[in-house]
Design a protein around this nucleic acid. Sequence first.
RNA 1: UUGGGUGUAGCUCAGUUGGUUAGAGCGCGAGAUUGUGAUUCUCGAGGUCGCGGGUUCAAGUCCCGUCACUCAACCCA
Length: 445
Amino acid sequence: MPLIEPRTLKGFRDYAPALMIPRERVLQTARAVYRSFGFAPMDTPALEYAEVLLGKGGEESDKLVYRFRDHGDRDVALRFDLTVPFARFAAQYVPQLGTPFKRYAMGPVWRGENTAAGRYREFAQCDFDTIGTTANAADAEVVLVVNALFEALELGDFTIRVNNRLVLNGLLESLGVLDKPVPLLRALDKLLKMGRDKVVEEMQREAGVTAEQAARVLTLAEAEGSNADKLTRVESLCGGNPKAAEGVARLRELLAVAAAGGVPDGRVRLDLSIARGLDYYTGTIYETFLTALPGIGSVCSGGRYDNLAGLYTKQVLPGVGASLGVDRLLTAMEELKHPWLAGLTTTAPVLVLQFPGASLVECVTLATELRRANVGCELYPDGAKLGKQFQYAEKRGHTLAVFAGPEELSAGVVKVKNLAARTEVGVPRGELVATVTAELARAKP
RNA sequence: UUGGGUGUAGCUCAGUUGGUUAGAGCGCGAGAUUGUGAUUCUCGAGGUCGCGGGUUCAAGUCCCGUCACUCAACCCA
């Protein structure tokens, strides 16, 4: 029988322990941060009725959805984000759950789009949202959550860029070009990447505005100076446009709250050129950039929407939230040589060696004792040469090695070796747990 | 989806105008070393040249197709 070639689909990949360990750590970090703000976990199925996921229908993006007929000839599709299924969920359960409702969700989503570095067809998202309130407190809290999250991820400095669609819409309205916001904003969003001239060109071509109108939009977007300066500039540029005024007021408060919430000065930056989320964001917009790696784009984005579940219920559900791009973030961490990706392939800090000729029973007794004391512990499977066992321990990234040979056994001691420092101590058998615990605490700065 | 680039050992890569048994470094395994990871030395394993066709006396090398990766554009709810 011919062998089947082992392979994975384009855009899909395997996760070996060296990748999975930091990945789980990222997810665990996000989970802890979300929970600390009171977001509750939830999940929805990977597979849904296609009509639920496609909703509006006929959109460009629908082509990216994995869609097929199931065994009962149902028209089904894989979720392409966590927001749309959440909308369906909210429509079904909000009466029981009550509002405001805060949730987080993490899991894989699927998009049949072209691949690129850090962009796959199956990838994880890690969302949090507050629905059922239009209060600006929820908008500001997004900034606090993102700030706490990226501090916990130990990725160095970062910038949270914020904007408000009300400001953009108000500006377009005051310029009399509100009829074609999508191509305009899409062009505007590329400002950082393409530069001013090309954006003007695209605005004229795609949105049919005059060069002068395009220039005015850009004048606003390119505003330099402090956040406060920019807001003042918007106010003067948009005259008394009520939408813009509301956007400015909300941004002002958001910035004040962020500062009060301990977000360092300068970390939140007003950026009037970001526009993302064209289909449903209606208020505050967020993007997060790593200072060390701006080229990779936003690693955590989101925004406010007026009505999450309008497709599924008549109840109006406004909300605000953001999503961590886990896989893009991991790509960034790899490039930054983040210590979490140091190549650990073990999850147990201690390796118990089997001294050549030693009794397995004795070794298992040691390991069990450590595990009962909540110390992760792996047992080397056979009595290979000590050097080989040490090599294994080092390669896997264990912190300590524990072993006892005939000499130690007869003296009633056990040896504990710090693998990185290459130092070892012999301790009385009864002090094993205490010594290991202390050594582990010392080894972990 | 469109256009460019790439694909040779576990990894990084050589491989001449097509020419005979396809190479190196690192890594890996065994030993030198019968209680300790390095260095050194010895020996060794490991390759459907991404896959499938075609041209040719002869293909890793040229042609076509295909799969995957990558860069750019498009897109990113």
